[in-house]
Design a protein around this nucleic acid. Structure first.
Length: 507
RNA sequence: GGCCCGUUCGUCUAGGGGUUAGGACGUUAGAUUUUCAUUCUAGAAACAGGGGUUCGAUUCCCCUACGGGCUACCA
């Protein structure tokens, strides 16, 4: 058991976009695997054909790639335990279900969904379990002969687990410690559906066994079905190989109650999915963190901190650091409410932390989307360094750096015009003369000295001319130090912008 | 309703029988930057309640309350 190779899987069902809670589950699985030198596997749980959504699987893989947690084995990468889609493993599950029936741990049930619905409505606390199974249509209540007849006639049926009466099932959750259940409260879950597909309960056990999964981390919503899985591991005779379980605390809405859902994102104005998800059926686009301008580094970081910490005050971790430091026993038991403000803070921190060089491709993309093409990359790098500390989302790079590439088309005139006078006009006219005498490049410090000297000469205060100068170059009241901007813009462009603005301000 | 899980500032959390209960986001006030942001300093802000156990509980146990999850031929 302990010398077993560490293998964890992320097992989403391809039903749509990937929720950030799902990504966190994937991340924790990945981090634990990598922390132990193990493998991270992606298994697609597409056993519900009615909920299958085209494109979702590809989307999921792209999400994992974007986050930098590409699986070692997956439908795309393949591997020794292929196939990795449960729909392609369909034929294999029936055998195990039949084996359970033969050994008395499962049975055929012929009840229609309608009959069961009626029972659920009419009988308070109805459960398909020990209390009622003898009154329903199944191979336990029917004679062998009648059962065979129905089976031979091709009567639609499912296979259900026969949960024992009056037993206690317990296990040791890596996060929660000892958890136990009274089997009288557990119902006879369907294992194999009428269409021949396994339910999650059967498939997860069979595949985790076959794929030699050593540890399984999943959301807390699975805790109530754990006893069914435990029983199955036991009945199938694989108990010694059962993975160690950990049920991760859920991520809740920032306000109000309940699990975070994509609806909350729309309502509260932040993304819930990792990347944009387009639903071809409804034409609805659900926004994602990636497209909103989040860095994968920040996304991983903020997700990791939702329920985990390393015991120090450090909150900024790269994926590599997380791989090195992650440990499941530092994951908290309690639910966490998602806080978008803090999420943005992580992104701002990562933008500041990352080198201009690694930010470059993303900034190029943002600028391109706004019609700005980059011709001089080393200039871009300087611009990124100049403005990155005032960007929270990648999209902010447009607003914060556009004026480095295009002269302002409009000016924040309110900031200038009311107090504009001939003295200031004179100041800038003289400034142009000084600028023209500058050799080739502007040195920010020297230029600042010259600027201030001229200010004194003309008896003007910094407040009188600094802001107008900024407006001339930038168009608005924002950006780095104005002399740095002038230096970056260069002599000719600075002169050009001052001249142009002077015409506007005087006109 | 039943079952399961949980509960430290508004939020994410550290801590753990004796602490001024620490940090971060957000927030407030200052400083710096005569732009905006950054940065810096300071402030407000929490152990759900009740019983035990104990010399001493926020910490351990029980109960209650509250919150969440599950209760499908969905995962």
């Amino acid at each position: 058991m302990s010398d077993k190779k560490v293998r964890l899987r992320f097992a989403p069902s391809p039903t749509g976009g990937l929720h950030l809670g799902g990504v966190r589950t994937a991340l924790f699985n990945y981090l634990f695997a990598k922390n132990h030198g193990g493998d991270f596997i992606l298994r697609i749980e597409d056993t519900d054909q009615t909920r299958y959504v085209d494109g979702a699987e590809k989307y999921i893989m792209e999400c994992l790639d974007w986050c930098g947690i590409t699986p070692d084995e997956s439908p795309a990468v393949c591997g020794p335990f292929a196939p990795y889609r449960q729909s392609e493993r369909k034929s294999l599950y029936r055998e195990y279900a039949e084996k359970l029936v033969r050994e008395g741990h499962a049975y055929y049930a012929f009840d229609t969904p309608e009959e069961l619905d009626r029972n659920r409505k009419e009988i308070p606390n109805f459960q398909y379990g020990h209390a009622y199974r003898d009154t329903l249509r199944n191979s336990l209540s029917l004679s062998q002969h009648d059962t065979d007849k129905l089976l031979d006639a091709g009567e639609p049926h499912v296979i259900r687990i026969k949960v024992p009466v009056g037993e206690t099932v317990s296990f040791n959750d890596m996060i929660r410690g000892h958890v136990s259940f009274d089997t009288n409260q557990v119902d006879d879950k369907v294992l194999l559906k009428a269409d021949g597909m396994p339910t999650y309960h059967l498939a997860v056990v069979v595949d985790d066994y076959l794929m030699k999964i050593s540890h399984a981390f999943r959301g807390e919503e699975w805790l109530p079905s754990a006893p069914v899985h435990l029983l199955l591991w036991d009945y199938l005779g694989w108990k010694a190989d059962m993975p160690q379980w950990a049920h991760l605390p859920l991520i809740l809405k920032p306000d109000g109650h309940g699990k975070l859902s994509k609806r909350d994102g729309a309502r509260l104005g932040f993304p819930v999915y990792a990347m944009n998800w387009f639903d071809a059926k409804t034409g609805e686009l659900t926004p994602g963190f990636r497209e909103l301008g989040f860095l994968p580094e920040a996304f991983d970081n903020l997700l990791a901190m939702l329920g985990w910490n390393d015991g120090t005050d450090n909150e900024i971790f790269s994926l590599d650091e997380l791989k090195e430091k992650f440990s499941i026993d530092r994951v908290s038991k309690a639910v966490a409410k998602f806080d978008f403000e803090k999420a943005k803070w992580y992104n701002a921190e990562w933008i500041k932390k990352l080198k201009a060089e690694s930010l470059k491709p993303k900034v190029v993309e943002v600028l391109a989307q706004n019609g700005i093409t980059i011709t001089d990359e080393s200039y871009l790098l300087k611009v990124i360094d100049a403005v990155k500390e005032r960007c929270v989302l990648l999209g902010d790079f447009y607003q914060q750096s556009a004026y480095f590439f295009e002269a302002p088309k409009a000016y924040d005139e309110n900031a200038v015009k009311l107090k504009w006078n001939e003295a200031k006009n004179e100041f800038f006219k003289t400034l142009l003369v000084i600028l023209n005498k500058v050799d080739e490049t502007i040195d920010a410090h020297i230029f600042e000295e010259q600027f201030k000297a001229l200010m004194e000469e003309k008896s003007l205060k910094a407040g009188d001319v600094m802001l107008p100068f900024r407006i001339m170059l930038v168009g608005g009241k924002f950006g780095p130090h104005v002399f740095d901007i002038a230096a970056l813009l260069g002599k000719d462009e600075t002169i050009c912008r001052v001249e142009k603005a002077l015409m506007v301000f005087n006109g």
